[in-house]
Structures are given as structure tokens and as C-alpha cells.
Design a protein around this nucleic acid. Structure first.
Lengths: 350, 350
DNA sequence: CTGAAAGCGCTTACAG
DNA sequence: CTGAAAGCGCTTACAG
């Protein structure tokens, strides 16, 4: 069936009795070819077991259709959801995006970016790793390869970003906590080297300001953006003389950690301490107690990022508008007494 | 800094005052070049903003160093952990693997595989999507590109596989349940079109056989391998006249679903119904109650798969030994009274 | 509609 | 150690 040596368009041409130009045209779906010729060629392609050599093609074409997605933490389901949203769009466009993981390492990111560039990508969607230096994308920018930032941005970069309205999300979550009667509030997890952190913390602080929570009644505990980090945050906060009674967490992972730490102390999220997460990952609504969280429509933002990228490639530009996605608060059990949720039959809320 | 048009080795050669062969040699780190020449060339590379064109190089070299990882479900943290294990090894080898997601679709898998082949991959690690046809990898095999299956296998395929000992894992988990005194057992989730399912179910059945649980006391409920699937399984099983008192679940996601469904009914995993998961994802130990699960060392298997792939590429073979990883049972709270765990201070177990 | 020819950016013998 | 030349597999004008 397949010849031993790798088949090329020349083998196809020979097999089909045409020139290699004709084969190339068929491969590209050109309308210039007589249908019967095309059929003959396609049969030959099958017969010789041909595999298109994209590298050779790109060499001549100077533009590929490979798109790279650079993700900072694949084990966080939040980013996996983002990737899935993007893939949906690319699949419809007949493109297979290649995902690369940086595991939150700026050094690894450098390697990954270099490799993707060498591969001749047409565009890059990236969620930059923590600690990315301002110049990390300069090389790519000057090469004219379009980049879009998803979920995270870099300070003072002109690269377009697709992200949720972090400030507003934090604001409405904090407001909700205050309206519930909480007066001593905490912000748990994350660290100031992330722009996202500054935005979320900013929303928290503004809500406190506007709704009359004095600075002395606010507790801010930085920490890892993981369950472990969340557990540590709670322990730190509860050690204070006048500990907070509610916390907005940097993300859901931190919130899950806080709830675990509460359990460990025999306390109950909701009844004894209010916790609100951020991102609303799938697990949030299934957790017990169900986690109140800021919904950011992760997959939707992924789709949006993919669309923007497609448009940039098509119009040969490296510029695009930022897109700040709407957010809302999914109120569930973890932020305290909620009559509706209580009646829904969740066993442990009684 | 960077020239407008894409810089090539010819530009570098001109800039450094050497021939392009010399540049190529420097690029490949050849020891044939005088150090001072190499330094001069490297400076020129920086100055012209050069990006290596791997496609062009591969055209001549006929072998690339690109490795593809094809994953059937990136949103399952289990597979994300697998990917992370593989990446660790590849990173050490200076390779950037490209991950592609098939979202459990055989059709998408076909596209992904084709794209990866066109890209000229040196090797492929794949966890085949459900419903993969036996011939799906024939083309790749005849092309001589090495493939390794990770976690999942295809019936009657000669492609090497790296996977945990599913049969034994299910056996020891079932044995544990029986030793705890359970006589009516269930196997929840998964479906028979997956070889893994057959292996795990096989281990369950063998344990029942050996330890004297008659067929009439075994309940087998197929279902989606997700939380939702797990919830449905429990509901189905409890509707029976003589419902089971314990279940081995196809994977942890199903187990989490079963525990949720128990809560919904006001029942407690462990006290009222024993549940054991499979895979031991990170979340299992943090769940409340903590989930007893079969540990398969996911990241370790990922590393193993990567090593095997590297060796295959190096020795230019498409053959390798299968590797069946050892398993063990992480006993925690969800499978019933366990004095040690009870004393560990988990609030809700009292 | 189809063929002959040039060239994309690299590596690889082969001389020197 | 370094240079000149051929060639990898494709696409792209350009003729016909």
C-alpha cells in the first residue's frame, strides 16, 4: 500500500500521470482543475500513502495555519476550560491549535515561545506565566506574529487582551458580603506581581470604601493560588484578635482551600464564615456547601480570544481591541444563610 | 534592531563575515567551529533578530524533534496530571511537546493526528479517544512514526502501551470492600467500549468470584465517566429491591458524583454507603469525606511514557515493551469506618 | 486547464 | 576549520 520511502507530490504526479503543479493545485483545492483530473489525483494520493509536508509548503508560502496556545497552568481546570473554548472555534475553522504548558515558569515560557516561533506559527494566544518580563514578547512582536493575551495581561503592554472584568467582579462579590451584614472582611490569596490580583483586590477595596468598611476592618492575606494557599490564608486570618467573618478569595481554588480549613476547625462555610470564590469553575456548584463565586464565562472568553486571533491573522495585523467580559455573581451556599438554597435539599445545610 | 524582512542564515553570514555553512554549523552547536568564530556568529544572530526555521531544517534533515501528545480529555485533571509528567521529561531533554485535545471524539482525533503528521512529528504519545477504530493509526505506523499509548489501549493493537495495572487495582479495591463486611457490591460508571473498563470490571468480578460474592449480589451500572454519570449510577442502584451497600467506581469523577448523590439523599459516604474511586486524583484526598481510591501514579506513568518515546526515537524503532504500572489502595474515609482516619480531626466524621 | 522552472531556508557531503 | 554546490518537498508565477 504505502511505499517505503516517504511519498512526495512527485510520486503522486507519476502515479496519476500529471505534473506536480497539478497535484499541488489539487492539494490546495484549486477550482482550476478539471474534476476528473482531481479525482484521479486524489486516488493517487491515497494509493501512495501521501502525507502533506507542511514545513515544505510553509517554506514557500511564508505563512502557516498553525496557532499556538500557551497556557500557564494546565492542571487548573479553569485554564483547561479556557482551552476547550478556544478549540471549539479553531476546530470549526479547520485549524488544529497546539497547546503548550508553561507551568507558571517564565523560563519554560521562553522555551515554549521559541519553539512555537521556530515552528512558524501564524499566531499565539497566551496566558502569560507569573513573573513574565516586559520584554518577553518583544521578539515575537517585531517578527510581526499576532499575539493575544487571554485572562491575564502584562503591565504596559500593547498586546490585546481578552479577560473578564475583574474589578467589577470583586466589587459585586464584596458588596454582596457587606449587604449580608459582614463588617470585617478579608481578601485571600494571590500576590501583587499579577495584574489580575491588583484588579481583583482593587474591586474589593473600592467596595469597602464605598460601603463604609474602614481599612482597619479589612484583612488582606497574600498566598498561593491553590487549595493549600487558601488553607494557609484562613489560618493566618483567624489568628487575629478580631478576625474577619467573611472572605473574598482570589480564585475558586483558594476558596476550596478555605472551606477545607474551616472543616478542619469544625466550622461550616456559610454558617460560621462566609466565603466567595472567583472564576466559577464547574466544581463550584457541585461542592458541598456549594460555592458562591464570580462567574466569568471562561469558555466564552476562550472562544472570543480565538475569534480575535483568527481575525488578526486574516487581516494581517497585530492590533486588536481589548475585550473585557461581563461578570456576575452566582450566589450559592458558602456565603451564608440563603433561604432558597437551604430548601433545595442539600443534606448538610440543616 | 530586527530587520523588517525575516532574517535567514544568509543575513547572519553576511553580518558575521562568514559563509552560511559556518552559520549552520554554529546553529547546530558543532564542535568544528573555532570559538571566536562561534561568538561572532552568535552575536550576529542576535543583531539580525534571527528566528530558526525548523520547517526548512526538517526538509533537509528528514527528522524533526517535535513530539505530539494527543489527549482525549484535557478538562479531566487526571489527564492534565499525565501531561505534566510527560512534560517534565521532555523539558529536561530540551524538547517542547505539543499537546492536542480530542475531547473524546474519534473524528477530531483523526484531524489532530493528520495535522501533527503534516507538521512532521518525530513521535506521538496518545491516549486514544473512545470509539477509535482499529485502523486509525495504520497510516502513522506505516509512515514509521513511533507511537505510544498512554493510560488507554486499543484492542488487538501492537502499539506499546504505558498504563496502570487496572485489573489488580480493581481487585484489591473490591477485596478491601468485602473484607470490611460488604456483601452486595456495585461497579459504577464507564462503558464496555473501553478496554480500561473491561480490565477494571474484570478485576472487580474476579475479586467477587474469589471471595464468594455470588453474581446475584453484584450490581453493574454503566454510565458516563463524570460526576453526572456517578450521580445517575447511584440513583439507579438504590432503586433496586436489595440495593448494594458499597461501590467501586470506574474513576474518581464517578465516585465524586456518587458521594454528591448520597448527600442529596441525606446519606453519608462511608457511614451509610461505601465508595471507592480509581486514579486517585489530587482532589481525592482533600474531599470531604476523603475519597478512598486506587493510586496509579499518574505523573509517573506520564514520565515513563515520555522516556519510552525518547528511546524509540533515538533507536529508530516503533517497537517497545508495554509497561504496566504498580497500583495500590489509598484507604481514606469514604469506604467506611476507619478508626485512624476518624481520629485525624476531620470535623464531619464524628 | 496543465507543464517547466525558479526559489523558499536550511543541511550535508565535498573540497580546500 | 570554512566555502561552494546540491537538494529536501513544496508553491508560485509564467507559458502554453
Amino acid at each position: 500500500m504505502a511505499s517505503r520511502a516517504k511519498a512526495t507530490i512527485l510520486d503522486i504526479a507519476r502515479e496519476a500521470g500529471v505534473s506536480k503543479s497539478t497535484v499541488s493545485l489539487v492539494l490546495q483545492g484549486s477550482g482550476l482543475i478539471r474534476p476528473e483530473t482531481a479525482i484521479k489525483v486524489r486516488k493517487a494520493i491515497e494509493d501512495v500513502g501521501y502525507v502533506y509536508n507542511r514545513g515544505a509548503a510553509n517554506l514557500r508560502k511564508a505563512h502557516s495555519n498553525v496557532i499556538g496556545m500557551v497556557i500557564n497552568d494546565l492542571t487548573n481546570p479553569f485554564f483547561a476550560e479556557l482551552a476547550v473554548g478556544m478549540e471549539r472555534v479553531f476546530q470549526a475553522a479547520g485549524i488544529v491549535p497546539f497547546i503548550a504548558n508553561t507551568a507558571e515558569s517564565a523560563v519554560r515560557q521562553e522555551e515554549v515561545l521559541k519553539s512555537l516561533m521556530e515552528q512558524g506559527v501564524a499566531g499565539l494566544i497566551v496566558s502569560p506565566a507569573r513573573g513574565t518580563t516586559p520584554g518577553a514578547f518583544r521578539r515575537i512582536e517585531t517578527a510581526g506574529v499576532p499575539i493575544v493575551f487571554a485572562m491575564r495581561r502584562l503591565p504596559e503592554s500593547r498586546i490585546p487582551v481578552i479577560a473578564p472584568d475583574n474589578h467589577r467582579g470583586a466589587f459585586i462579590a464584596t458588596e454582596h458580603l457587606i449587604r449580608k451584614g459582614h463588617r470585617r472582611l478579608a481578601f485571600f490569596g494571590g500576590s501583587s506581581d499579577l495584574v489580575v490580583y491588583q484588579e481583583r483586590l482593587g474591586g474589593f477595596l473600592e467596595a469597602c470604601e464605598v460601603l463604609g468598611i474602614p481599612a482597619s476592618d479589612r484583612t488582606i492575606v497574600e498566598g498561593e493560588t491553590s487549595r493549600k494557599g487558601g488553607m494557609a490564608c484562613l489560618d493566618t486570618a483567624l489568628a487575629a484578635v478580631e478576625p474577619p467573618t467573611a472572605a473574598l478569595c482570589f480564585n475558586d481554588a483558594v476558596a476550596f482551600g478555605v472551606m477545607l480549613a474551616l472543616r478542619k476547625r469544625g466550622l461550616e462555610a456559610g454558617a460560621d464564615f462566609a466565603v466567595v470564590g472567583f472564576d466559577d469553575v464547574t466544581e463550584a456548584e457541585h461542592y458541598i456547601p456549594a460555592l458562591t463565586s464570580v462567574t466569568v464565562d471562561t469558555a466564552g472568553l476562550g472562544e472570543r480570544a480565538a475569534h480575535v486571533m483568527l481575525k488578526m491573522i486574516q487581516s494581517r495585523t497585530t492590533r486588536a481591541e481589548d475585550h473585557i467580559g461581563a461578570v456576575s455573581l452566582a450566589v450559592r451556599e458558602s456565603c451564608g444563610p440563603d433561604r432558597n438554597a437551604r430548601n433545595a435539599g442539600m443534606g448538610d445545610a440543616a
